[in-house]
């Protein structure tokens, strides 16, 4: 059962991921990414990280992607012309990616020796995450709030139109 669910999810994630890259229309890409992110949330849930799964949906699907779609709609972005040298680039990526894949497979299969098992000691429930977040990681948490503050100010400053001079 677990295995089937995993493979289904993995297939959907890979499929939608490819769709993100392959779709010409950016709004299609964005919707594919939304599906992809919800799939990732499901993966999190299958790894007992319920809190992260929910936050993934709220933050990524609910906030970030809405923003992206918003921008696409506002700017009315049409389909793009493909890059001239895209096959060359694709070749480069495939080559590098293949090397990467081989290298990391080497790690997975040889460094770990035995297949590592998933343990179930502590699950990522809201209570557990909250406890860790506000004790051990309270400083990163506060720093994150500062970061977001800076991002808010920064984005407003970048995106706002300059006020026209009143004559």
């Amino acid at each position: 059962m677990e295995t089937i669910v995993f493979y289904l999810l993995a297939a959907s994630i890979v499929f939608t991921g490819v769709a993100v890259v392959a779709m010409r229309n950016p709004i299609h890409s964005a919707l594919a990414l939304v599906c992809n992110l919800i799939g990732v949330a499901a993966i999190f849930a299958s790894l007992q990280a319920h809190f992260l799964a929910t936050v993934q949906v709220i933050v990524y699907a609910g906030a970030i992607m809405v923003l992206v779609i918003f921008v696409i709609m506002l700017l009315n972005i049409k389909e793009e012309k493909p890059a001239r040298e895209r096959f060359l680039l694709l070749g480069g990526v495939v080559l590098a990616g293949f090397a990467f894949f081989v290298a990391l497979s080497f790690v997975f299969l040889h460094q770990f020796q035995v297949t590592p098992e998933l343990t179930d000691e502590i699950t990522g429930s809201v209570a557990n995450i909250g406890r860790v977040l506000f004790t051990k990681y309270v400083f990163p948490f506060e720093a994150a709030s500062l970061l977001i503050m800076a991002a808010i100010v920064g984005s407003i400053m970048i995106a706002k139109t300059k006020r026209r001079e009143v004559s």
């Binding site: 919707l31 809190f51 799964a53 929910t54 949906v57």
Partner: peptide, 25 residues
Amino acid sequence: SLNTGVLFILAMGSIAVYGVVLAGW
């Protein structure tokens, strides 16, 4: 029976925007 019950409702609420956005678009 999720251990993130209320958050789940919030998550679904945030997804609900897509229907509106898609319809408008």
